[in-house]
């Protein structure tokens, strides 16, 4: 249970930054009995580096005043300092501790790349939706009496809303664009997510042993000149980037294509799936190709064995 931004940083530092982890408040007692609303928002979806963080916040339906007192409003209109300030109040002030619960899901850049580079590709949307669903479940499992859910989305709300309603038939679900400027509980969730991401970047430790801090990699947004420089220059010829970077972002992909060793993974197309065995009619009239090398037995093909000269 963290009680300051310093403790938030220490908690993040104690976790492996190439895997996912969550950070959560204690469930306030009142949330276990009173019907609660829950807000969901995300931070760091677009940047080419750092984790994406999903945040939820919940409080009794009749306690919206606490959120207003905290200053939860359109989080995009809040400065970083202001967000830090509100989050600090959330984890210290009696009124908030007694009424507002929250959870942050820190999704590592490595997890994001790995998901998008699966054999069966997993889109960022799926990663996002799974995180949101898991967080709502986690809140309910830890005892919060959730009745209403508000979700901010960048994509089309209808499909998302239908999916959530199917999974959580007992909750009243609202998915909306810019929900964080409409519903204070989503603003609170947004603050949880943004503050967590901001601090995760501040304390990022490169397991690669690079002595760099945020002044040298920036915000991660593709327009940030510091990030641009980092993506352009911090390249390892074989491994590409340190794990801070989302390899699956086109900014990173294009730069590696240009500046690092070419890496080709095996084709995903399984043998025998596409190629047709039907010979074209003209092939029956063509002169048989006698120079064609003898095909090796499939014993060797299946094992990738061939006679070669490694000294060539």
């Amino acid at each position: 249970m963290i009680k300051s931004l310093q403790e938030l940083q220490d908690y993040i530092k104690s976790k492996d930054n190439f895997t996912n982890f969550t950070n959560s408040s204690v469930v306030p007692d009142v949330c276990k009995t009173e019907p609660c609303m829950l807000g969901v928002d995300e931070a760091g979806r677009g940047p080419v580096l750092g984790p994406m963080v999903y945040g939820i916040a919940y409080c009794p339906v009749n306690q919206t005043k606490v959120l207003k007192d905290l200053g939860c409003a359109d989080s995009k209109a809040l400065t970083e300092d202001k967000r830090d300030d509100i989050f600090s109040k959330m984890i210290t002030e009696e009124d908030s501790l007694n009424n507002v619960g929250w959870i942050a899901d820190v999704i590592s850049p490595n997890y994001i790349s790995n998901s998008m580079y699966r054999r069966a590709k997993h889109s960022l949307n799926e990663v996002s939706m799974n995180s949101a669903i898991a967080l709502i479940k986690k809140a309910a499992e830890s005892g919060a009496n959730i009745t209403e859910v508000y979700v901010d989305t960048v994509g089309p709300p209808e499909k998302y809303q239908a999916k959530l309603s199917e999974i959580f038939p007992d909750y009243k679900i609202t998915v909306a664009k810019k929900a964080d400027s409409i519903y204070p509980i989503v603003s609170a969730a947004s603050i949880v997510a943004k503050v967590t991401r901001d601090h995760a970047l501040k304390v990022w430790k490169f397991l690669e042993g690079l002595e760099l801090n945020q002044a040298e990699f920036g915000s991660g947004y593709p327009g940030d000149p510091v990030t641009k420089k980092f993506i352009r220059e911090q390249i390892d010829h074989v491994f590409g980037y340190p794990m801070l970077v989302r390899f699956s972002w086109s900014t990173a992909e294009l730069m590696l294509q240009e500046k690092a060793a070419t890496c080709t993974f095996e084709d995903i197309d399984e043998p025998g799936s596409k190629r047709s065995n039907t010979k074209s009619i003209s092939s029956f009239f063509a002169k048989p190709n006698e120079d064609k090398p003898r095909k090796r037995h499939k014993f060797f093909d299946e094992r990738h064995l061939s006679v070669g000269n490694p000294f060539e």
Binding site: E208, H237, V238, A261, T264
Partner: peptide, 15 residues
């Protein structure tokens, strides 16, 4: 499981 178009030392221990 990947063809790496490079021949020489690599920062395996670090990366």
């Amino acid at each position: 499981p990947c063809k790496i178009d490079s021949d020489g030392p690599a920062n395996v221990e670090k990366y």
